[in-house]
Amino acid sequence: MANYVNLVFCLCVSSFFLGLIVLMPVLLVLFASPSSPSFSINIFDDQTLNMTKSDDDSNMTIHFDLKLKNENSAIGLHYPDQLNITFSYFPNVSMIVNLADYKLDSFYQGNGKTRHVRDVVETNSFPRVLDGTDFIAFRVDLVGSYRYKKAGTKRHKVELGCVVGVNVTDNTKMQSGFIKLVEPGLDSKLKKKPPPDYAGAYR
Protein backbone atom coordinates (compact mmCIF):
# COMPACT_ATOMS: atom_id res chain seq x y z
CA MET A 1 0.00 0.00 0.00
CA ALA A 2 2.83 2.33 0.91
CA ASN A 3 4.50 1.63 -2.41
CA TYR A 4 1.25 2.42 -4.24
CA VAL A 5 0.91 5.75 -2.39
CA ASN A 6 4.52 6.63 -3.18
CA LEU A 7 3.96 5.78 -6.82
CA VAL A 8 0.87 8.00 -7.02
CA PHE A 9 2.74 10.81 -5.27
CA CYS A 10 5.66 10.52 -7.68
CA LEU A 11 3.31 10.54 -10.66
CA CYS A 12 1.55 13.66 -9.37
CA VAL A 13 4.83 15.47 -8.75
CA SER A 14 6.13 14.44 -12.17
CA SER A 15 2.92 15.62 -13.87
CA PHE A 16 3.11 18.95 -12.03
CA PHE A 17 6.67 19.65 -13.09
CA LEU A 18 5.99 18.43 -16.61
CA GLY A 19 3.08 20.85 -16.80
CA LEU A 20 5.32 23.68 -15.61
CA ILE A 21 7.90 22.82 -18.25
CA VAL A 22 5.22 22.90 -20.95
CA LEU A 23 3.54 26.09 -19.70
CA MET A 24 6.69 28.05 -18.88
CA PRO A 25 7.51 29.02 -22.51
CA VAL A 26 3.90 30.08 -23.07
CA LEU A 27 3.86 32.20 -19.92
CA LEU A 28 7.22 33.73 -20.78
CA VAL A 29 5.91 34.75 -24.21
CA LEU A 30 2.71 36.20 -22.76
CA PHE A 31 4.48 38.26 -20.12
CA ALA A 32 7.79 39.07 -21.81
CA SER A 33 6.37 40.10 -25.19
CA PRO A 34 2.85 41.46 -24.61
CA SER A 35 0.84 42.84 -27.51
CA SER A 36 -0.18 46.45 -27.97
CA PRO A 37 -3.89 47.27 -27.60
CA SER A 38 -5.91 47.74 -30.78
CA PHE A 39 -8.21 50.67 -31.55
CA SER A 40 -10.96 50.97 -34.15
CA ILE A 41 -13.84 53.35 -34.74
CA ASN A 42 -17.22 53.41 -36.44
CA ILE A 43 -18.62 56.87 -37.18
CA PHE A 44 -22.09 57.77 -38.41
CA ASP A 45 -23.36 54.27 -37.57
CA ASP A 46 -27.19 54.16 -37.56
CA GLN A 47 -27.17 57.92 -38.17
CA THR A 48 -29.13 59.61 -40.92
CA LEU A 49 -26.49 61.35 -42.99
CA ASN A 50 -27.06 64.69 -44.61
CA MET A 51 -23.83 66.09 -45.98
CA THR A 52 -25.48 68.94 -47.89
CA LYS A 53 -24.98 72.26 -46.15
CA SER A 54 -27.93 74.63 -45.97
CA ASP A 55 -27.73 78.36 -45.18
CA ASP A 56 -28.72 77.64 -41.57
CA ASP A 57 -26.06 74.99 -41.00
CA SER A 58 -22.97 76.09 -39.10
CA ASN A 59 -21.97 72.69 -37.70
CA MET A 60 -22.93 69.02 -37.68
CA THR A 61 -23.19 66.12 -35.23
CA ILE A 62 -20.94 63.05 -35.41
CA HIS A 63 -22.04 59.80 -33.78
CA PHE A 64 -19.15 57.45 -33.07
CA ASP A 65 -18.34 54.09 -31.48
CA LEU A 66 -14.71 53.75 -30.39
CA LYS A 67 -13.57 50.17 -29.69
CA LEU A 68 -10.52 49.56 -27.51
CA LYS A 69 -9.32 45.97 -27.18
CA ASN A 70 -6.70 44.54 -24.84
CA GLU A 71 -5.07 41.88 -27.01
CA ASN A 72 -3.35 40.25 -24.01
CA SER A 73 -5.12 37.35 -22.31
CA ALA A 74 -2.69 37.35 -19.36
CA ILE A 75 -1.95 41.04 -18.69
CA GLY A 76 -4.19 43.99 -17.86
CA LEU A 77 -3.66 47.50 -19.22
CA HIS A 78 -3.69 50.90 -17.58
CA TYR A 79 -4.48 54.03 -19.58
CA PRO A 80 -2.92 56.51 -17.12
CA ASP A 81 -3.57 59.67 -19.15
CA GLN A 82 -6.56 61.01 -21.00
CA LEU A 83 -7.07 59.67 -24.50
CA ASN A 84 -7.54 62.54 -26.94
CA ILE A 85 -9.63 61.91 -30.05
CA THR A 86 -9.66 64.53 -32.78
CA PHE A 87 -12.17 64.71 -35.64
CA SER A 88 -10.98 66.63 -38.70
CA TYR A 89 -11.47 66.77 -42.46
CA PHE A 90 -9.40 67.44 -45.59
CA PRO A 91 -10.62 70.32 -47.80
CA ASN A 92 -7.65 69.52 -50.06
CA VAL A 93 -4.64 67.21 -50.07
CA SER A 94 -2.36 69.70 -48.31
CA MET A 95 -4.64 70.90 -45.52
CA ILE A 96 -6.52 69.42 -42.58
CA VAL A 97 -9.11 71.31 -40.51
CA ASN A 98 -10.11 70.49 -36.94
CA LEU A 99 -13.83 69.84 -36.40
CA ALA A 100 -14.13 68.56 -32.82
CA ASP A 101 -12.15 67.15 -29.90
CA TYR A 102 -13.15 64.44 -27.46
CA LYS A 103 -11.38 63.32 -24.26
CA LEU A 104 -11.67 59.94 -22.55
CA ASP A 105 -10.60 59.81 -18.90
CA SER A 106 -7.97 57.34 -17.69
CA PHE A 107 -9.15 53.80 -16.95
CA TYR A 108 -8.04 50.19 -16.42
CA GLN A 109 -8.74 47.40 -18.91
CA GLY A 110 -8.69 43.78 -17.77
CA ASN A 111 -7.07 40.79 -19.46
CA GLY A 112 -8.43 40.32 -22.98
CA LYS A 113 -11.25 42.81 -22.42
CA THR A 114 -12.90 45.03 -25.05
CA ARG A 115 -14.42 48.42 -24.25
CA HIS A 116 -16.83 50.40 -26.42
CA VAL A 117 -17.11 54.17 -26.04
CA ARG A 118 -20.29 55.33 -27.78
CA ASP A 119 -20.90 59.07 -27.81
CA VAL A 120 -21.68 62.15 -29.90
CA VAL A 121 -19.61 65.23 -30.71
CA GLU A 122 -20.77 68.49 -32.25
CA THR A 123 -18.43 70.08 -34.75
CA ASN A 124 -17.32 73.71 -34.70
CA SER A 125 -18.04 74.13 -38.43
CA PHE A 126 -19.53 72.33 -41.39
CA PRO A 127 -17.01 70.27 -43.41
CA ARG A 128 -16.32 70.90 -47.09
CA VAL A 129 -15.82 68.31 -49.79
CA LEU A 130 -12.31 67.32 -50.79
CA ASP A 131 -11.36 69.49 -53.77
CA GLY A 132 -12.20 67.86 -57.09
CA THR A 133 -14.33 65.08 -55.55
CA ASP A 134 -17.82 64.37 -54.25
CA PHE A 135 -16.44 63.14 -50.93
CA ILE A 136 -15.92 64.61 -47.51
CA ALA A 137 -12.71 63.03 -46.22
CA PHE A 138 -13.02 62.83 -42.45
CA ARG A 139 -9.95 62.15 -40.33
CA VAL A 140 -9.99 60.58 -36.83
CA ASP A 141 -6.83 60.72 -34.70
CA LEU A 142 -6.21 59.21 -31.28
CA VAL A 143 -3.36 60.25 -28.98
CA GLY A 144 -2.68 58.76 -25.56
CA SER A 145 -0.59 56.28 -23.63
CA TYR A 146 -0.87 52.90 -21.91
CA ARG A 147 1.22 50.65 -19.70
CA TYR A 148 1.05 46.98 -18.83
CA LYS A 149 -0.03 45.83 -15.38
CA LYS A 150 3.30 44.38 -14.34
CA ALA A 151 6.24 45.64 -12.31
CA GLY A 152 8.71 48.00 -13.92
CA THR A 153 6.68 48.81 -17.03
CA LYS A 154 6.81 52.23 -18.64
CA ARG A 155 4.26 54.25 -20.55
CA HIS A 156 3.90 53.50 -24.25
CA LYS A 157 2.73 56.41 -26.41
CA VAL A 158 -0.06 55.91 -28.92
CA GLU A 159 -0.55 58.04 -32.06
CA LEU A 160 -3.00 56.42 -34.48
CA GLY A 161 -5.51 57.52 -37.06
CA CYS A 162 -7.77 56.68 -39.98
CA VAL A 163 -9.66 58.36 -42.81
CA VAL A 164 -13.41 57.92 -43.40
CA GLY A 165 -14.86 59.03 -46.72
CA VAL A 166 -18.52 60.01 -47.15
CA ASN A 167 -20.10 60.54 -50.56
CA VAL A 168 -22.16 63.74 -50.46
CA THR A 169 -24.20 62.70 -53.51
CA ASP A 170 -25.87 59.70 -51.91
CA ASN A 171 -24.71 60.17 -48.28
CA THR A 172 -22.98 56.79 -48.11
CA LYS A 173 -19.72 55.86 -46.40
CA MET A 174 -16.84 54.43 -48.40
CA GLN A 175 -16.04 52.03 -45.54
CA SER A 176 -18.67 50.24 -43.50
CA GLY A 177 -18.37 49.08 -39.91
CA PHE A 178 -15.30 49.55 -37.74
CA ILE A 179 -12.13 51.02 -39.22
CA LYS A 180 -8.85 50.22 -37.52
CA LEU A 181 -6.74 53.14 -36.31
CA VAL A 182 -3.22 52.64 -37.61
CA GLU A 183 0.17 54.30 -37.84
CA PRO A 184 1.23 56.79 -39.02
CA GLY A 185 -1.33 58.71 -37.03
CA LEU A 186 -1.11 62.46 -36.78
CA ASP A 187 -0.71 64.57 -39.90
CA SER A 188 0.77 67.29 -37.72
CA LYS A 189 2.27 69.24 -40.63
CA LEU A 190 -1.16 69.57 -42.19
CA LYS A 191 -3.02 70.66 -39.07
CA LYS A 192 -3.72 74.30 -39.81
CA LYS A 193 -6.82 76.38 -40.31
CA PRO A 194 -7.72 77.41 -43.85
CA PRO A 195 -7.19 81.08 -44.72
CA PRO A 196 -10.29 83.33 -44.49
CA ASP A 197 -10.47 83.64 -48.28
CA TYR A 198 -10.30 79.86 -48.87
CA ALA A 199 -12.56 79.14 -51.86
CA GLY A 200 -13.46 75.53 -51.07
CA ALA A 201 -17.01 74.83 -52.18
CA TYR A 202 -19.80 73.51 -50.00
CA ARG A 203 -21.92 70.70 -51.30
Rank of each mutant, 00 (worst) to 15 (best):
V140R: 02
I62C: 03
H156L: 07
N6I: 04
D55T: 04
T123W: 06
E159R: 00
D46V: 08
S145C: 00
C10H: 01
T172Y: 06
P37V: 09
S54G: 06
L190I: 01
G19T: 06
G144Q: 02
K67D: 03
F107W: 06
L28C: 10
M51N: 07
N42T: 06
A32F: 13
Q109M: 13
R147F: 05
I136C: 01
L30A: 15
F135I: 04
V182P: 00
E71G: 00
P80T: 11
S125M: 06
S54T: 14
L77N: 09
V26G: 02
M1Q: 10
V5F: 01
L30V: 05
T86F: 11
D57K: 07
H63M: 06
L7Y: 13
P194C: 05
N124Q: 09
T114R: 08
A32V: 06
T153G: 00
H63K: 12
T172L: 08
L142N: 03
D197L: 12
V182S: 14
K154P: 00
F64P: 01
V22M: 07
F44I: 02
V166L: 07
D65S: 13
I75N: 12
V5Q: 10
N59K: 03
L83S: 15
D55N: 03
D55Q: 03
V168N: 08
V166A: 11
S188E: 11
T172F: 01
H63L: 08
D101W: 05
T123M: 03
I43H: 05
L68A: 08
L30M: 13
S94D: 13
D119G: 04
M24G: 00
P194D: 12
G110Y: 03
L11W: 01
N50E: 01
L27D: 07
K67V: 09
S188K: 15
N167R: 10
I96D: 05
S125E: 11
S106A: 15
D57F: 02
V164L: 10
E122Q: 14
D55W: 00
S188C: 02
V129H: 00
D119K: 04
E122S: 08
K69L: 14
I96Y: 00
P196F: 08
S14K: 01
A74E: 12
L190S: 12
S58P: 00
S73K: 15
T48R: 09
F126D: 05
L20N: 07
I136T: 05
L49M: 13
T48H: 09
M51G: 03
K150I: 11
S88D: 11
N167G: 06
L68T: 14
N124P: 01
N70Y: 08
L99C: 07
V22L: 12
K191W: 13
L68M: 15
S145T: 07
M24Y: 15
T52N: 13
G76E: 15
F16G: 00
L142F: 05
A2W: 08
C10R: 07
S15C: 09
I96K: 12
G200I: 10
L27R: 08
L83K: 10
P80S: 10
R128C: 05
L160C: 01
S106E: 11
Q47G: 04
P25K: 04
T172A: 08
P184F: 02
H78R: 14
P195D: 11
T153E: 11
T169Y: 04
F90L: 14
G185Q: 06
D65L: 07
D81C: 11
I96H: 00
